[in-house]
């Protein structure tokens, strides 16, 4: 119930956590801490060797997690345990190749069976209708991205194939904290809203409580990734640090 969780959250912050950093046990603890601290939902990032939509921080996180031995096969049995004990719905964010490696349908079923409620795929093919139908029949939300450059007709199509929430990308560019976020995102969220009843969340670049506050004045939720993972990688106590970062963003 991703949409429901975002709607009922007073201040819907959705943290992104790279799986397997520093190891899978830590990821489990971080997820629990974030949920306890009030995350509306949590994105679990699947590390990929070639993350072309990510800036330096998430590239590094991905790289370190793979070096530490991350695999999807290692993750999923643990997710099954975490998902029953954690209030916040869990979402997987992954580039398409690791999901396709052993068949898209089969992998999505495995995700669903471990309690994952939604997927975000930044390099979904432009003609993704096949995948959205697979997701619908399997019963997992396909959260799609709408970019600042997306033309109206395409926006309509993407939103119509979307479930869970609509992900409005705030900036032209890759992931990574930015001190200035473009004002156009407000307009973009309004445009999306006119097409759907789904929650509309914004992400890419958000790193401060003020930015969160700002975004939540017009969006239903905010995704925070690089800022959190940057702090996690610098910290000796990543679990504590995640809790602290989220509390600060929720203030």
């Amino acid at each position: 119930m991703i949409a429901e969780a975002i709607r009922t959250s007073k201040r819907a912050v959705i943290p992104y956590v790279t799986a397997g950093l520093p190891d899978l046990d830590a990821t489990g603890e971080i997820i629990r801490a974030l949920s306890d601290a009030g995350a509306a939902a949590i994105e679990i990032g699947i590390p990929f060797s070639d993350p072309m939509a990510d800036g330096p921080v998430l590239q590094k996180a991905s790289h370190l997690a793979l070096q530490a031995g991350f695999t999807l096969d290692g993750l999923l049995p643990r997710v099954a345990k975490w998902s029953t004990g954690v209030r916040a719905p869990l979402i997987v964010m992954s580039y398409i190749n690791p999901l396709m490696r052993r068949g898209m349908g089969e992998t999505l079923v495995r995700l669903r069976d471990s309690g994952i409620q939604g997927v975000i795929i930044p390099d979904l093919p432009s003609d993704a209708s096949g995948i959205h139908e697979i997701c619908r029949s399997i019963g997992i939300d396909l959260i799609r991205l709408v970019a600042p450059t997306t033309p109206e007709e395409r926006r309509r199509e993407v939103v119509s194939q979307c479930s869970g929430f609509v992900y409005a990308v705030t900036v032209k560019g890759v992931t990574g904290a930015r001190s200035n976020l473009p004002a156009e995102v407000r307009r973009q969220v309004q445009d999306i809203r006119s097409l759907t009843d789904l929650p509309v969340c914004t992400g890419f670049g958000v790193s401060t409580a003020t930015q969160v506050e700002d975004m939540l004045s017009f969006a239903d939720g905010v995704i925070v990734g690089s800022h959190l993972m940057g702090r996690v990688m610098e910290s000796k106590t990543p679990v504590e640090e995640s809790r602290k970062v989220l509390r600060m963003l929720m203030m």
Binding site: M52, L145, T149, R154, K172
Partner: peptide, 22 residues
């Protein structure tokens, strides 16, 4: 299908780039 050679090819890119590719 347009943009494919049989089952190969396509346009698997961040949404931001789609209009530029078109």
């Amino acid at each position: 299908m347009k943009g494919y050679f049989g089952e190969f090819g396509g346009r698997y890119v961040p949404e931001t780039l789609l209009p530029a590719l078109q």
